[in-house]
């Protein structure tokens, strides 16, 4: 009951936080996509280097989020920018890895057929490899987005705003209402994004690959 009253009193604050959260997630995932897909294509053409680079990137991924935020805070100060930088870095790995595996798992027979009938490298990429890798790439984007919704909540700690702010206020003042007002919408956002991208993934799967149920 208390909570409903609280939401009633604070709904502009909550709404602002939700929008800020979406903004953080959207931009960092966008940056992640714009960087990772071309990079994944590049890696798929240099497989030897790719394994090493992916190994290094996944070590970066083991750096705890709090540490990354702390470092960003030291370098860029308080605010939006450090959060965006850190979140973008975190969004890279899943998309990069899935782009790379999606492209390299295209059957060699198809590549040979494509080359054998006279496709240029870019025709092969856009007509065969990318369409076939699309489900895997989008699944990477989905994983990234769910991560970033989570990490963005943490970014409230360094003054990036968003739902993390509310949770953080709640935690430091031991105010259950604030905690719930931040935690529940952030969970809903995560489910929502995951569901929407899952739908997009099904749509982007070439019809010929969608099993007999499609």
């Amino acid at each position: 009951m208390n909570f409903i009253v609280f939401v009633n009193e604070h709904y502009t604050e909550i709404l602002t936080s939700i929008l800020q959260h979406i903004y953080l997630v959207f931009f960092s995932v966008m940056i992640g996509i714009l960087f990772s897909i071309p990079a994944g294509i590049l890696l798929s053409r240099h497989k030897k280097a790719a394994e090493k680079i992916l190994a290094v990137v996944s070590i970066v991924q083991t750096i705890p989020g709090l540490v990354m935020l702390g470092l960003a805070l030291l370098i860029f100060g308080v605010g939006n920018t450090p959060a965006l930088v850190v979140l973008s870095i975190y969004s890279v790995l899943p998309i990069l890895r899935n782009t790379y595996t999606g492209l390299t798992e295209v059957q060699p027979g198809l590549i040979e057929a494509g080359r054998g009938i006279g496709m240029t490298l870019s025709q092969l990429l856009f007509r065969v490899q990318l369409p076939l890798a699309m489900p895997s790439i989008i699944s990477g984007i989905r994983i990234s987005t769910v991560y970033i919704v989570s990490w963005a909540a943490l970014a409230g700690l360094i003054g990036a705003g968003g739902l993390g702010d509310l949770i953080w206020t709640g935690l430091s003042t031991y105010n259950t209402n604030y905690i719930l007002a931040g935690a529940i919408p952030s969970a809903i956002l995560a489910f929502l994004f995951s569901g929407i991208i899952g739908g997009v993934q099904r749509l982007a799967t070439p019809r010929g690959l969608r099993g007999s149920t499609a």
């Binding site: 919704v149 993390g164 935690l171 935690a183 995560a190």
Partner: peptide, 14 residues
């Protein structure tokens, strides 16, 4: 696992 970590922890703290 989809629930953001901070949100989950905060709710558990309650």
């Amino acid at each position: 696992q989809t629930i953001p970590a901070l949100a989950l922890l905060a709710i558990l703290m309650i």
